[in-house]
Amino acid sequence: MTEYKLVVVGAGGVGKSALTIQLIQNHFVDEYDPTIEDSYRKQVVIDGETCLLDILDTAGQEEYSAMRDQYMRTGEGFLCVFAINNTKSFEDIHHYREQIKRVKDSEDVPMVLVGNKCDLPSRTVDTKQAQDLARSYGIPFIETSAKTRQGVDDAFYTLVREIRKHKEKMSKDGKKKKKKSKTKCVIM
């Protein structure tokens, strides 16, 4: 069974824990209790493949930012979460993405942009803004509501699919490099 290491990042209060708990335990946590770091595991079937999701729910508070490099190193894919009623959390996505790329030393890291709290009427981040940002990053965008469960499975499952595509691409690139290195030079 394939294991996928997913990391949920975003500013404090955007609903990272609520999304994760909704996926794992099928219930909505409405009281806000700032996370330092929590880890969850769940076995699911995605596109006919049974897999184990190892999900790291991270601290959004700035005082825990020193811990970010460590979990970013171990993560295979990242859910970059903002709240649709919090423009600052949307603007912060850029910083999370840049930090992930720096730590992973790669421009090509599996990510999904997630606009959470889409059940709320007080939207300050337009869907088109988020779609445009995701398009500019070359990553999928999904709106979710941890409260109603809308888009929750889709967000995590899409990230797994992005990781699969990335692994497939990397193995193809690896095979191309191996083929090239088999060419021999004969000096007579």
Results as ranks from 00 to 15, higher is better:
Thr2Glu: 15
Thr2Ala: 14
Thr2Arg: 14
Thr2His: 14
Thr2Trp: 08
Thr2Pro: 14
Thr2Val: 11
Glu3Phe: 08
Glu3His: 15
Glu3Cys: 12
Glu3Trp: 06
Glu3Ala: 15
Glu3Asp: 14
Tyr4Met: 14
Lys5Pro: 08
Lys5Thr: 04
Lys5Met: 03
Lys5His: 07
Lys5Gly: 06
Leu6Gly: 03
Leu6Phe: 09
Leu6Thr: 08
Leu6Arg: 02
Val7Phe: 06
Val7Asn: 08
Val7Gly: 04
Val7Pro: 02
Val7Ala: 10
Val8Ile: 11
Val8Gln: 04
Val8His: 02
Val9Asn: 05
Val9Thr: 05
Val9Ser: 05
Val9Pro: 02
Gly10Val: 01
Gly10Pro: 00
Ala11Thr: 08
Ala11Cys: 12
Ala11Pro: 10
Ala11Arg: 06
Gly12Tyr: 08
Gly12Ile: 07
Gly12Val: 09
Gly12His: 07
Gly12Asn: 07
Gly13Lys: 09
Gly13Pro: 12
Val14Leu: 11
Val14Asp: 09
Val14Tyr: 07
Val14Met: 11
Val14Phe: 08
Val14Pro: 11
Val14His: 10
Gly15Arg: 01
Gly15Phe: 00
Gly15Pro: 00
Gly15Cys: 01
Lys16Phe: 00
Lys16Cys: 06
Lys16His: 02
Lys16Tyr: 00
Lys16Gly: 05
Lys16Ile: 00
Lys16Asn: 04
Lys16Pro: 00
Ser17Pro: 00
Ser17Asp: 00
Ser17Leu: 00
Ser17Glu: 00
Ser17Phe: 01
Ser17Val: 00
Ser17Gly: 03
Ala18His: 05
Ala18Ile: 06
Ala18Lys: 08
Ala18Gly: 12
Ala18Met: 11
Ala18Asp: 07
Ala18Pro: 02
Ala18Gln: 13
Leu19Pro: 00
Leu19Trp: 05
Leu19His: 15
Leu19Cys: 12
Thr20Gln: 03
Thr20Cys: 06
Thr20Lys: 03
Ile21Met: 13
Ile21Thr: 15
Ile21Trp: 05
Gln22Val: 04
Gln22Phe: 06
Gln22Leu: 04
Gln22Ala: 07
Gln22Glu: 11
Gln22Thr: 07
Leu23Ser: 15
Leu23Cys: 14
Leu23Gly: 15
Leu23Asn: 15
Leu23Lys: 15
Leu23Ile: 10
Ile24Leu: 11
Ile24Lys: 04
Ile24Trp: 05
Ile24His: 06
Ile24Tyr: 04
Ile24Met: 14
Gln25Arg: 08
Gln25Phe: 04
Gln25Thr: 07
Gln25Glu: 08
Gln25Met: 07
Gln25Tyr: 07
Gln25Leu: 07
Asn26Tyr: 08
Asn26Leu: 06
Asn26Phe: 06
Asn26Gln: 10
His27Gly: 13
His27Leu: 13
His27Tyr: 13
His27Cys: 12
Phe28Thr: 04
Phe28Gln: 04
Phe28His: 06
Val29Met: 12
Val29Phe: 10
Val29Cys: 13
Val29Ala: 13
Val29Ser: 13
Asp30Phe: 11
Asp30Pro: 14
Asp30His: 11
Asp30Trp: 10
Asp30Gly: 12
Asp30Val: 10
Glu31Val: 14
Glu31Cys: 14
Glu31Leu: 13
Tyr32Ile: 04
Tyr32Gly: 03
Tyr32Asp: 04
Tyr32Ser: 04
Tyr32Met: 04
Asp33His: 04
Asp33Leu: 03
Asp33Lys: 05
Asp33Ile: 04
Pro34Leu: 04
Pro34Thr: 05
Pro34Lys: 04
Pro34Ser: 07
Pro34Trp: 03
Pro34Ile: 04
Thr35Asp: 02
Thr35Asn: 01
Thr35Pro: 00
Thr35Trp: 00
Thr35Tyr: 00
Thr35Val: 02
Thr35Ile: 00
Thr35Arg: 02
Ile36Trp: 03
Ile36Pro: 00
Ile36His: 02
Ile36Glu: 00
Ile36Thr: 02
Ile36Met: 04
Ile36Val: 05
Ile36Tyr: 04
Glu37Asp: 07
Glu37Trp: 03
Glu37Arg: 03
Glu37Gly: 07
Glu37Asn: 04
Glu37Val: 04
Asp38Ser: 01
Asp38Met: 01
Ser39Ala: 15
Ser39Pro: 00
Ser39Glu: 08
Ser39Tyr: 10
Ser39Ile: 02
Ser39Phe: 08
Tyr40Lys: 01
Tyr40Ala: 01
Tyr40Gln: 00
Tyr40Pro: 00
Tyr40Val: 01
Tyr40Phe: 03
Arg41Lys: 08
Arg41Trp: 05
Arg41Ile: 06
Arg41Leu: 06
Lys42Met: 09
Lys42Arg: 13
Lys42Leu: 08
Gln43Ala: 11
Gln43Ile: 08
Gln43Met: 10
Gln43Gly: 11
Val44Trp: 07
Val44Phe: 15
Val44Met: 14
Val45Ile: 12
Val45Ala: 13
Val45Glu: 14
Val45Thr: 13
Val45Pro: 12
Val45Gln: 14
Val45Leu: 11
Ile46Arg: 10
Ile46Cys: 11
Ile46Gln: 11
Ile46Leu: 10
Asp47Ser: 09
Asp47Thr: 07
Asp47Ile: 03
Gly48Met: 06
Gly48Val: 07
Glu49Thr: 11
Glu49Ile: 05
Glu49Pro: 08
Glu49Tyr: 06
Glu49Met: 07
Thr50Phe: 08
Thr50Asn: 13
Thr50Gln: 12
Cys51Arg: 09
Cys51Gln: 10
Cys51Trp: 13
Leu52Asp: 12
Leu52Gln: 15
Leu52Asn: 14
Leu52His: 14
Leu52Arg: 15
Leu53Gly: 09
Leu53Asp: 03
Leu53Arg: 03
Leu53Glu: 08
Leu53Met: 11
Asp54Val: 06
Asp54Gly: 09
Asp54Tyr: 08
Asp54Lys: 11
Asp54Arg: 12
Asp54Cys: 06
Ile55Leu: 09
Ile55Pro: 03
Ile55Asp: 02
Ile55Phe: 09
Ile55Ser: 10
Leu56Cys: 08
Leu56Asn: 04
Leu56Lys: 07
Leu56Thr: 09
Leu56Met: 09
Leu56Ser: 04
Asp57Gly: 01
Asp57Ser: 02
Asp57Pro: 01
Asp57Asn: 01
Asp57Phe: 02
Thr58Ser: 12
Thr58Asp: 02
Thr58Trp: 00
Thr58Tyr: 02
Thr58Arg: 02
Thr58Phe: 01
Ala59Val: 01
Ala59Lys: 02
Ala59Tyr: 02
Ala59Phe: 02
Ala59Thr: 08
Ala59Trp: 01
Gly60Ala: 03
Gln61Ile: 08
Gln61Asn: 14
Gln61Gly: 12
Glu62Leu: 07
Glu62Phe: 07
Glu62Cys: 08
Glu62Ser: 09
Glu62Thr: 09
Glu62His: 09
Glu62Ile: 07
Glu63Gly: 08
Glu63Pro: 09
Glu63Val: 06
Tyr64Ala: 05
Tyr64Lys: 05
Tyr64His: 08
Tyr64Asn: 06
